[in-house]
Nucleic acid binder design. Structure first.
Lengths: 275, 275
DNA sequence: TTGCTCCTCACGTCACGTGAGGTGGC
DNA sequence: TTGCTCCTCACGTCACGTGAGGTGGC
């Protein structure tokens, strides 16, 4: 028989607040060993502290409660450790992003707004291997692009189609206005590809990517700084052209995996305008 | 005359979502240059993008909106940079804490619960220099203790009173149950000190710290691991003694600033019990 | 004229914290 | 018996996101 303690005692044992303990009971994580049916008084067994210690550390790492439940009720050690490891990787990525933003903020405060030369260009229709998604969240865009272009280049290579120009992607208005919207990634291939059967089932098939008239600015640097070139191109358009409510296109002249230093990345930002 | 754009265009220029822009307008941060009185349509000037870029970076760093307002409306560059710098320091501390918790989690998963030898001890009344606060938040406890003990040791030294034993602190029940409660820090000094006029105005004065009967366990290691020894001592008390609803005392046998490696810290955790 | 954009509520999210008002346990 | 602990609502926090329902602009 292990001893039982009141919620207040258990709080002192575990360094979890009474409010938190009641909440964990409400959601089914860490239910007390016994609840008095008349008074509702909670009694915790001292053998529950081990679980409480785990919960406390996971919450201190901001693991969402739903995942804490998953860890605590994991059928085996491996499942449990995988949830934790995935969260630690998420935190690593967050840290990297934070460092990028700090650098970007420093850059903004030092340099102020950037000057970007904006040119007008008519882009023709392109034959290309295409991947699209109806709703990509802005936070996921980097991972989505990495994966998509990897797939596209592999498919082009497997089909013996040499890319005929830089890859690109186009972003629907909702992607900016709602942080969630349609994205299309493409790798240009020879026109003749359309006549051939390319890839297997599930592989990207050749399509026509429609062209148009664009105001174009060259973005030099990391993707975290994209808004600065968008601001320059968009401001130019607002002052000199008529913007069209079509997707904005980015053309990746130089980027990963070829370039490793984000400072070297070169991307054209193409803003659709009235001809 | 700078051009004006709709909220949707401004969203594409700045990479701030339309919902976020409306929210920033509501709270008075980043108000549009013009609002149509009839329709409520917002029009932003393209010269507002610079401010928007700053806001976006600050929010990406999780600076609270109230402080973003403070930065954006700072009277001078120095005020602005100080708010930002303070936030960056906060983030540094957060990172350190996160790394500590990761280590602590790893330790828990590897070692499991710790064994702690618990002894019973009657502690007598102590003459000591004392600092107390009615409500210290758990997150602030480390900073509060560092500052308090620094003050106490300086006061003892200035008054020519050599500490007669290890320093300690006592934590009221609410400190654990509500993550916010009374804390008292003390440094023991010779009894004769009570007869002398010590320190100047505002300096801690000598007092009697009441003793009592305690269950005592030795905590070896970092303060982030405190809950493990609390669990051991508290469980022992629950099984063998009657706990009293009095403050729990910690006695700092070895800690900062003398020891630098948290692995070496030694602290006694004293749980008040019925004699 | 027809979509499309824009508008304003009202409510949801997440993990508790903050009281209010009341009762049981020692 | 007297505090003290414990209980359950109901609401607040923070920075927007998610619709609903409706109107203006090109």
């Amino acid at each position: 028989m292990t001893a039982v303690v009141t919620i207040g005692e258990f709080s002192r044992l575990t360094h979890l607040s009474v409010k938190a303990l009641r909440h964990y009971h409400d959601i089914g994580l860490l239910a007390p060993a016994h609840v008095d049916p008349g008074t509702g008084y909670r009694r915790y067994g001292v053998d529950q502290v081990a679980q409480a210690q785990l919960v406390r550390r996971l919450r201190d790492l901001d693991l969402p409660l739903a995942e804490v439940v998953a860890v605590v009720s994991a059928p085996d050690e491996q499942t449990r450790n995988e949830v934790i490891a995935e969260h630690l990787r998420r935190m690593e990525r967050e840290l990297q992003r934070t460092q990028d933003v700090v650098a970007s903020l420093r850059h903004l405060l030092e340099v102020g707004t950037v000057q970007v030369a904006v040119e007008h260009r008519t882009i023709g229709h392109l034959t290309a291997l295409v991947l699209r998604a109806a709703a990509v969240a802005r936070i996921d865009i980097s991972a989505w692009c990495t994966e998509s272009f990897s797939t596209l280049y592999r498919a082009a290579h497997a089909a013996g189609l040499p890319p005929t120009g830089p890859a690109g992607a186009s972003y629907g208005p909702a992607f900016f206005e709602r942080d969630l919207g349609e994205v299309l990634a493409y790798v240009p291939v020879p026109e003749a590809a359309r006549l051939r059967c390319v890839g297997g089932a599930g592989s990207p098939a050749p399509e026509i990517v429609p062209g148009g008239r664009f105001a174009v600015g060259l973005h030099v640097g990391a993707f975290t700084e994209f808004d600065r070139t968008y601001a320059a191109v968009g401001a130019h358009v607002a002052e000199h052209d008529r913007a069209l409510p079509l997707p904005i296109r980015e053309i990746y002249l130089l980027g990963p995996p070829e370039a490793h230093d984000p400072g070297e990345f070169r991307t054209e930002v193409c803003w659709p305008i009235l001809p």
